[in-house]
Every structure is written in C-alpha cells, then in structure tokens.
C-alpha cells in the first residue's frame, strides 16, 4: 500500500473534521482493492495532478452521517443541513486536499487541485475502473461512518 501518498489524506480528513466540524473521527479499516464499489448517499470527488502523480479522492457519506455534521457546523436544522450537505462536502474536500497537498509538497510532490464535484442519490454506488487500485479508508464518528477513497496513479509506472 502506498502509505506515503495516502497518509496525508487520512490525517487531513481527521484534522479537517475536528477543526471545522468539531467531529472526532476514528479509522475503522483501510483496504486496498481493485474493482472497488463505494456506496453512500452523498459523494464528493476531487482530482489532484502533478508531474509524477495523479490522485483522485472521494469522500462518501450516508445521509445519516453528513446531516448531523453539517447541522452542527452551520447551526442549521436537519432540513437545512440536508440542503447544505453538498456544499459542505465540497468545502471539506477542498480543505482535505489543501492540507494533504501541503504535506506532500514537503516530500517534493507538487500537486495542483481541480474543483470538487459532489453527487447525491439514495444509496448511490461509485465504481472504480477494474485496472485501478483504490485505497478505501472507513472512518467512524459519533454520528455514523463515512468513507475516504484515494486512488493514486504514478505516471510512467
């Protein structure tokens, strides 16, 4: 497993949720798979690309996890937080990517960030390309679980 590239995203996810959402997270499992399917209700996807590396990260939340987190972050009712959830996930992705990118830059890995895309749908499934290995990190919070999926593509190898 390519922990050098994965760890900054795992640490950033924990830091961002602790700092911005007052939410402590715990890593439940980390697995590396081809043919990965991630199921959720909301999923934010962001690409980062550099000379040596391309990274795609996904933050996937069940509604039961993201709504209370967004409600606490924004002091909103659950109904309002449900509406805000996509933009909250977009911002979380921006911050996770920004912090991870800074950590990777210290190891001379320079990445530029694309804009996040957030999709929603009851029980939507994201399926990775057969040829691509994805590291799937499952987190636990007091509100429920969510998933960070990181796909690293080394250019030329």
């Amino acid at each position: 497993m390519v922990t050098t590239e994965i760890d900054p995203f795992v640490e950033a996810t924990a830091d961002v949720l602790a700092m911005m959402a007052d939410t402590e997270v715990e890593v439940v499992s980390i697995r590396e798979d081809a043919n990965t399917k991630v199921k959720s209700d909301f999923a934010g996807i962001m690409g980062l690309a550099g000379r040596e590396l391309s990274v795609a990260i996904t933050l996937a939340f069940p509604q039961g996890t993201i709504v209370p987190i967004a409600a606490a972050m924004l002091e909103e009712t659950p109904e309002e937080a449900l509406e805000s959830a996509p933009t909250v996930i977009g911002e979380l992705l921006n911050m996770v990517s920004g912090q991870a990118r800074a950590s990777l830059a210290e190891a001379d890995v320079d990445l530029d960030m694309a804009l996040p895309t957030v999709v929603k749908g009851d029980g939507l499934a994201l399926v990775a390309d057969d040829a691509v290995k994805v590291v799937v990190v499952e987190f636990k919070t007091a509100e429920g679980s969510f998933v960070l999926a990181v796909c690293v593509d080394r250019k030329g190898g």
Binding site: M19, M20, M95, G98, Q99, A102
Partner: peptide
C-alpha cells in the same frame, strides 16, 4: 486552502495583512 509558498509570497506582495490556511478553528 492555498498553502503553497508561492501563493503566500504572492499575497504578501499584494499587501495582505495576514493569511490563514484552512482548516482552522
């Protein structure tokens, strides 16, 4: 979320008073 050194320098040159990188509390 822009934490690259060149961004910080660019902001300082443009006259920013201070700079805070997300995430923050």
């Amino acid at each position: 979320a822009e934490s690259k050194k060149k961004n910080v320098i660019e902001a300082v040159r443009a006259g920013v008073s201070n700079y805070v990188i997300k995430p923050f509390n």
